[in-house]
Design a protein around this nucleic acid. Structure first.
Length: 275
DNA sequence: CGGGCGGCCTGGAGGC
DNA sequence: TGCCTCCAGGCCGCCC
């Protein structure tokens, strides 16, 4: 569930609470993730190190540590980060617990185990296997209608799949793809290669608007997502189409939101507004 | 070789 | 009320 706005919400909270904190202990209670945690690499790289910065690339969090080490974390579907007093009882599915020098703990909990956690020296970042194939960031100047039009040239893929393709633009998952297409009045099945330059411009603007608004609202909490302190994001209440099949379209108010399945994923749109 | 799709997972929801 | 099935979906790797 965490897409770009949820990961960015966590990044902001981490930067506000953990800057210059030192890791005094690391406990890996369960290394079974989509990519198993390599304890003997991760623990020595983290022990005693200090947090110097918190970055995000796509849906990955990058923790900059002292001595030019970087910790890479992906929340997968169900990954949670929480910052709690060390006395707080541990929970089921806590995978990694970082004890900090202020007697608090940063905990990574992931019931479905789709997440990943790794470390590497900063020098190796650009060549990192998980990061090197990623497309442009939605808030970078490189994300333009022209960029998307060129990427899509000749493609018959549905535009929704295209928006969710992290080699083209990163950070857009299923929830926000639906919202972006609604905002840009674009049918999810329209062929990417047949979208006009001006519509790509609209889609780029819609992508930035939808993601930016979600970040300012602390992300979308449908069931799982919560911030470092456990608080919920309020963007879920602002969703226009996602999970709203059968409800009236909030724009035209005369058609019901429809639900179809594309590449195995729930897709919501207004048949009147989105052509 | 672009791109569709299965597999990885568990908890919660809904049906009977 | 309890059990079963289905669904949620990011991402990688397989395969057409």
């Amino acid at each position: 569930m965490p897409e770009l706005p949820e990961v960015e919400t966590l990044r902001i909270a981490l930067a506000e609470s953990l800057m210059q904190r030192r890791i005094v202990d690391v406990c890996i209670y369960d290394s079974r993730l989509r990519v198993p945690i390599v304890d003997e690499r991760v623990v020595p790289a983290l022990l005693g190190r200090t947090f110097h910065g918190f970055r995000r690339r796509a849906k990955y969090l990058l923790f900059d540590l002292s001595d030019e080490w970087v910790m890479l974390l992906h929340l997968g579907m169900s990954g949670h980060l929480s910052l709690v007093p060390a006395t707080e009882p541990r929970r089921n599915h806590d995978h990694v617990v970082f004890l900090l020098d202020d007697n608090r703990e940063l905990r990574f909990n992931d019931p479905r185990r789709f997440g990943m956690l790794d470390v590497f020296p900063r020098l190796e970042e650009s060549g990192h296997g998980r990061l090197c194939h990623l497309g442009v960031e939605p808030f970078s100047p490189a994300f333009t209608g022209e960029h998307m039009r060129r990427q899509a040239a000749g493609s018959r893929r549905p535009v929704k799949n295209f928006l969710m393709d992290a080699t083209k633009v990163v950070g857009v998952g299923n929830i926000y793809a639906n919202e972006i297409l609604f905002r840009a009045r674009t049918h999810p099945k329209r062929h990417a290669g047949r979208i006009s330059a001006s519509r790509w411009e609209s889609l780029v603007v819609a992508t930035r608007d939808v993601l930016h608004r979600a970040i300012t609202l602390g992300g979308t909490t449908l069931r799982d997502f919560s911030d470092l302190d456990g608080s919920r994001g309020s963007n879920g209440e602002r969703l226009q189409v996602y999970n709203r099949s059968g409800y009236r379209c909030p724009r035209c108010a005369c058609e019901d939101i429809r639900r179809i399945v594309m590449v195995g994923r729930a897709t919501f749109y207004c048949p009147r507004c989105q052509r």
